[in-house]
Design a protein around this nucleic acid. Structure first.
Lengths: 238, 238
DNA sequence: CATAGTTTGTTGAACATTCATTCAAAATCT
DNA sequence: AGATTTTGAATGAATGTTCAACAAACTATG
């Protein structure tokens, strides 16, 4: 793994427009800052294109047009199309990772709360929207045949999985359940990914709310002592 | 829906190897085979190519080479690349559909048995192998941006989902559980799809057996009265 | 401060490659 | 012979990449 394109994230440039007028960044030169902004702008345009046209029909021209720039610009900031896509995947991966870690932090020390927070985080609007899900799916479709993508394509990586196993173990010890923590954790995270897939396809009437309810239904079934059922199918409110 | 390419399934075409060069040279070299055999041969070659190179790199030439035939042959049997891919997806869809219906039939009348059979069917070798899973994933990645694929891309369709809901309802009535059948059924089928995705990526040490165990762990947790836990994490043997 | 020179960023056209499709001729079957 | 299937080269369109010229921002120097 020679080079991993890593970008500094300046603020959360995620959803809104990048402000054209960057103030006098005392230390940074306007030029250098502009470079990172440009790259982020191109990455966002790439996500747009992936979501709208799919992986196989995403072209350099479409990305450039989407960013409102000229054709050759992408090869200047990213060496090739391949590297642009890797950088885009890396960006989404970093964002997802930061998001669930943040949610975990906010959840406090109670394992039951933490697990519920992790699950809920997956369906947060900032992460779970048509555009991003479609982009994820586009990469999944190519991951198996591209070694470069494989490591990053599972947004739910080993660290994520370890957290789930640990939480299942903690709840088991506390509630005296009979399941195997490893297996149940796998079932849980797989279900979250599967729900993402459903939302992505968007054919059925599955919405973010429906999906979250289904996930909570799972929690209530597997950990009845920690998540008592309510009529709405939603565990106790925070 | 003008034309749905429906193919007769002659025997079970090779599951084991991605064999690019067909060795069963029973007849003369590639010459003159029945139209249906040739179409099936090309579809199998398409699945091979999708699995090996991914959707975006699957070319007509690669398919033709994989089938050991000439370049122009695909446009003769299938009008275009698009139609070849739709026929391939249709073929996989039909196969999957027939498989779970067969498993359900064999399971008898007991809902608990039926549900377990449906889950186990998903991890049967004939359906759940690297080659097929990779092909499924390739289509998933393109489905959102191609209306033609959407209907077929969810191998788990409305009929499948309805069976799950009905079984969850039956078990709830029998066991006095508190869950919402609709939600739990969604969680269940999403988990199965998510486990497929894990198997496909193949990065971790997730195997077909591990995945099936995780799914059974889910069943045991959600329906404790119907699937008592055993040390192996696997519900009672049939 | 002003000016010239250098670096950095951007453009758009040209180029080379890949690939789906077409089709006339050949091969094979009825 | 006539119909059907197969071949392989030709064609044209799409697309990633390169590059020479240009513009803007920055630096050095007078």
């Amino acid at each position: 793994m020679a080079e991993t394109v890593t970008l500094m994230k300046t603020a959360q440039a995620g959803e809104s427009f990048p402000e054209p007028a960057q103030k006098g960044d005392a230390e940074k030169r306007g030029r250098k800052a502009s470079k990172e902004v440009r790259q982020l702008q191109l990455i966002e345009a790439t996500i747009d294109s992936l979501a709208k046209r799919g992986y196989s029909e995403t072209t350099m021209a479409d990305v450039a047009d989407g960013a409102g720039l000229s054709r050759g610009i992408v090869n200047f900031h990213f060496e090739s199309k391949e590297k642009l896509l890797v950088a885009t995947l890396q960006h989404m991966y970093d964002e997802y990772s930061a998001h669930w870690r943040g949610a975990l932090q906010k959840a406090g020390d109670d394992p039951a709360r933490q697990l519920q927070a992790l699950v809920a985080a997956d369906f947060d609007r900032s992460i779970c929207n048509k555009r991003k899900l479609a982009a994820w799916c586009a990469f999944w479709g190519e991951a198996k045949s591209r070694p470069t993508y494989q490591a990053l394509s599972g947004s739910r990586d080993a660290a994520y999985q370890n957290h789930f196993v640990a939480l299942c173990q903690a709840l088991k010890a506390d509630g005296g359940y009979g399941f195997d923590p490893q297996g149940l954790a796998l079932a849980l995270s797989a279900m979250l990914e599967g729900l993402w897939l459903r939302l992505m396809m968007g054919t059925e009437d599955t919405t973010r709310e429906t999906a979250l309810q289904a996930a909570n239904e799972f929690l209530a079934s597997a950990f009845p002592k920690h998540y008592p059922l309510t009529p709405a199918g939603k565990p106790r409110e925070a």
